[in-house]
Amino acid sequence: MNRIVSLTSGIIFGIGLTVSQMINPAKILGFLNIFGDWDPSLAFVMFGALIVSSPFFHLFKNNKKPVFAESFSYSNNKELNKKLIIGSSLFGGGWGLAGLCPGPAIVSLALLNKSSVIFVITMFIGFYLADIYTNK
C-alpha cells in the first residue's frame, strides 16, 4: 500500500503544480520580481496548500500511527544554524536565476524540454556534491 500511496501522492502533487502553473519558471520569476511587475500567484499556492494540510499536522501530532506505516518518520530538527542560512541562501540564488525549484523542475520533465533536463541533472550533481562536502 505504501508504494501505491507514494505514487499517487506524487501524481496529485504534480497535478497541483501544473494547475497552479508553478511549473512555469516565468510565474516564479514574476513572484520574485516584487520590485517590478509582480505576480503574487505563488503566495496563493502556498496559502492553499497550507490551509488544507496544516490542520492535519496538528491533529495527528500526538497520534500513534499513520495508516500504512509503523510510525511517523520525519526529521524534527529544530536547529537554527549557519548551514540552514547558507544552504537556503544558495537555494534562493539558484531559484531566482532560473525560476525553478526541485518540485516544478522534476514535474516539467514531462514536457520533454532540454532546459528542464539540464537543470534536473545539475541539481542531482548538486545533491551529490553537498553530500561529499558535508560528510568530509
Binding site: L84, I86, G93, G94, F119, I121, M123, G126
Partner: peptide
C-alpha cells in the same frame, strides 16, 4: 542554477 539549488537545498 541547478547546482545552486541542489547544493543549497541539501545543505539547508
Amino acid at each position: 542554477a541547478g547546482l545552486l539549488v541542489g547544493v543549497g537545498t541539501r545543505i539547508g
